[in-house]
C-alpha cells in the first residue's frame, strides 16, 4: 500500500516533528510512505482570501504530485477539507477536472481517520501518562466528521481525556483571519483557553497545527508555560 504523506505547509515550516510522527505511525503500520519533495501548500489560504485561481493552481499541483499513490494522508483536517471538499464541490465543480478531484478525494484521508478507518490500528507506539483535553478543529469536525477517531487513538496511548466545555467551538485561528481581525481572533482564542484551563489537563491536543499555534501562543502570552500543546500524532507516536 503506497501512501503519500501531505505534510502541510505549516508542519513543514514550523513543526517538522508532527510530520515525522505521522511518518512513524504510517510506516509502523506497514505502509510504504512517499513524500513528494515538491509539495508546498493545499491552496486554502488563497481560496479563503478570494484568490480562486491560485487555489486551483495549487490543487492541480497537489493532484499531480500524488497521482500514483493508493492513498494520501495529511495530519490536518483543514488541508484535507480543502482537498476533499472544496475542490470537488466548488473549485472544479462542473469542470472536466472534477472527476480527477473526486478520485483524489476518495483516496485522501485525514490522519486519524486513516489510522482508525483504513488501517484499523489497534495499538500505537506512544504512551502518555496524564490527562489531555481535545480541541476539535472546525474543518475536520464539520467537513469531515473527525471526532471520535483521535480520542480513540489517544485512549490507546493511555491518555485520559478530560473534555473541555465547548470543545467544538472555533479557537479563532481561521487562517488569515487571525491576522486580519486580530482582536476578535484573540478574544475567541482566549475563550478557548479559558475552557482549556478549566479542563485542567496536562496537555491540549488537536489535529490542526494552525489551531495549536494559536492556542499555544495565547496560553504562553497569558503566562501558562505548563500546559503542553500537542498534535495527536505526536502523542500517539510517542514523539511528544
Amino acid at each position: 500500500m503506497k501512501v503519500g504523506l501531505f505534510v502541510t505547509c505549516l508542519v513543514d515550516l514550523s513543526r517538522p516533528g508532527i510530520g515525522f510522527a505521522a511518518l512513524k505511525l504510517l510506516e509502523g503500520a506497514g505502509c510504504e510512505v512517499v513524500v513528494p519533495a515538491t509539495q508546498t501548500c493545499c491552496g486554502q489560504p488563497g481560496y479563503n482570501s478570494g484568490g480562486r485561481e491560485v487555489a486551483k493552481a495549487l490543487a492541480r499541483k497537489v493532484l499531480a504530485e500524488f497521482r500514483d499513490c493508493d492513498y494520501v494522508v495529511a495530519p490536518s483536517g483543514s488541508c484535507s477539507g480543502q482537498m476533499k471538499v472544496a475542490t470537488v464541490h466548488d473549485l472544479f465543480k462542473g469542470e472536466p477536472e472534477q472527476a480527477d478531484f473526486e478520485r483524489l478525494a476518495a483516496r485522501w484521508y485525514e490522519l486519524s481517520q486513516f489510522l482508525v478507518e483504513v488501517l484499523k490500528v489497534e495499538r500505537v507506539p506512544g504512551r502518555f501518562a496524564g490527562t489531555v483535553t481535545y480541541h476539535d478543529s472546525c474543518s475536520g469536525l464539520r467537513e469531515l466528521g473527525v471526532k471520535m477517531q483521535p480520542r480513540y487513538l489517544l485512549g490507546m496511548a493511555g491518555a485520559r481525556i478530560a473534555e473541555m466545555e465547548g470543545a467544538e467551538r472555533c479557537c479563532g485561528f481561521g487562517g488569515t483571519f487571525s491576522i486580519k481581525l486580530g482582536d476578535i481572533s484573540t478574544r475567541m482564542c482566549e475563550n478557548k483557553c479559558e475552557s482549556i484551563r478549566a479542563a485542567g489537563a496536562d496537555a491540549v491536543v488537536g489535529g490542526d497545527l494552525g489551531c495549536l499555534l494559536n492556542i499555544e501562543g495565547r496560553l504562553r502570552r497569558t503566562g501558562d508555560t505548563r500546559t503542553k500543546v500537542l498534535h495527536f500524532a505526536q502523542v500517539i507516536a510517542g514523539e511528544g
Binding site: 516533528g17 487571525s178 486580530g182 482582536d183 499555534l213 495565547r218 504562553r220
Partner: peptide, 12 residues
C-alpha cells in the same frame, strides 16, 4: 494582529 494578544510559537 496576531502578536498583539498572542505569542507566535517559533519554527524550530
Amino acid at each position: 494582529g496576531w502578536t498583539k494578544g498572542r505569542d507566535m510559537p517559533a519554527p524550530q
